[in-house]
Every structure is written in structure tokens, then in C-alpha cells.
Amino acid sequence: MDIFAQLLANSVIAGALYTLITLGFNLIYGATKLINMAHGAVAASGGYIVFFLTQTWGWGMIPAVFAGVLGAGVLGAVLDWLIFAPLRRRKARPPVVFTASLGAFTVLQAFLAILFGAQFLALLPAEAADTVSVGGALITSVQLATMGLAALASVGFFLFLRFTTFGKVVRAISDDEEVAKMLGVNTDRIVRIVFFIGSAVAGLAGIMIGLDTGIQPTMGLFIIVEGVIPSIVGGIGNMAGGVIGALLLGFAENFGIWFIPSQWKGAIAFGLLTLFLIFRPQGIMGRK
């Protein structure tokens, strides 16, 4: 096993996970200007749905993953319907909407802990991890799938936003919701769908984390921080920037531990964030 190749592989794997989180986060931010804290808990819920379906109802892994992704999407849409849409209609200012999303995050996390307990749960038995060797680096099949899905999701989001009518409408809402509404766009419906898609991708991220390492109610916080940092680094709300930021964070963390002990991963992430906030606050792709 070649250390450099392994670190390279680990960077891309981490970047792929962050990409899945950031894509949904940025999509929702782009359409609503909401820093959606609930995103992390929605992602965790995806993992728990898979756990429940496979362990309690005995579903196969593939259908359970589909159900988990769908379930997370529905959960996001429900949150929009119950909380964010009423606030939007009232033209609540960003701090209010943010605080509500933080509350939703807290409620969901507590709910998961009550239902499933606070302990760490594995979605896959440890012996199920089969590894392949790619250019001297060992990669599990789950990690391989994560990279494939992240690439697929990035390209899918790009094509979808660029070339479909729906994508154009989302961009129009992102530019100016009022004008879009005046032009006859049913913004509420579009935003609901945006929440569904963004949350479904988040659920996928939660499931892939669960398959790779495991799930825990508190994972949502980790997910939101690891989604927010690439988003700022890339330029908040910018989809391509988010992907670049996610990969950059993956590389910084994994190559950083070449020089300093691995438990300082979090500090490296924050260091990267700090550098960008000081020297390029608008992010890599952001416009001032």
C-alpha cells in the first residue's frame, strides 16, 4: 500500500461525501437564502430509515437505500411545508428562519435519539466490507459507490439547473423571488421541490456515511459543519464552487494529517475556513 496513493484516495472519498452534503445545502440556500441547519438532521434521518428498514423489517439493502433517500426528501419537503413556507409567506427575516431551522434540527436529533438510542449503530456488518485496490490504494466498495454517486449527483445537478425549464425557474427564484412570482411562477411549489431534492441528496450522504462507518443521532452536527465549510469556501449557494470546496476540504484534511496528528482534522477544516474568510470571503467561485 502506497501512502501517497492512499491519502489521495481518502481525500477524494471525503471530498465526495462533502460534495453530497454541500450540493443539497447549496441548492436550498440558492433558492431560499436559508442556512438550513435541519439539513444535517435530515441527512442523519436517511441513515436511520435504512437502519430501521433493514434491521426491523428485513428489507434488502438496495430497496432500503431507495426508501431512505425518498424518506429524507419527503422529510425535507414536510419541514418546508410546516415551518419554512409559513415563514416565507410572512416575509420573516433570515435570522428568524435560521433559528427555526436550528430548532427543527434540535427536535429531529432528539427524536432520533429517543427512538433509536444515542449509541453508534452500524448499517453494514464489519466483515461485509470488501476492498479493491486502485493504483496502490485500498478502497471499499461503499467508498467506490460514494465517489460514483457524488460524481453522478454533481453532473446531474449541473445539467438539471442549466438545461431544464425547472432549473431556469430555480435560478430565477434565486435571483429574485418577487419578480419570479410576478411572472407567474408558483414559487411555493418550486421551493417545495427544491427542498425535496436537496434533502434527498442529503439523505443519500447520511446513508453513505452510515454504510461506511455508522450512524449516531449526533452525526447531523458533523454533517452540517462539513457541508457549510465547503459551501463558504466555494462561495455560498454556488453549486460548482461547493463541489470544488468539498474536494479542497477533503484534500486539506487528509494531506494535513501527514504533518500533524489525525485528531486535528477538525482544526484543519476550521483553519481553511478562516483563511478564506480573511483573504477571499466571497469564496472561490463567488461574486462580490
Binding site: K33, I35, M37, P94, P95, F98, L221, F222, I224, V225, V228, I229, S231, I232, I236, Q263, W264, G266, A267, A269, F270, L273, T274, L277, I278, P281
Partner: peptide, 27 residues
Amino acid sequence: LFARLGGDYYVMGSVAWNFIVVSILIN
């Protein structure tokens, strides 16, 4: 660090900072 940049950055940065402080205390 955070307040220069306006509301959204402050909020997001503050969550990240709290997370990092706990990880520093642990590590």
C-alpha cells in the same frame, strides 16, 4: 473574523467555531 462579512457568514462561522472548540477540548 465573522462580523466583517455579514449575517450569513457570522451564523455559519459561529456553528463551525463552536464545533471546533469542542474538538480542541477533546483532542
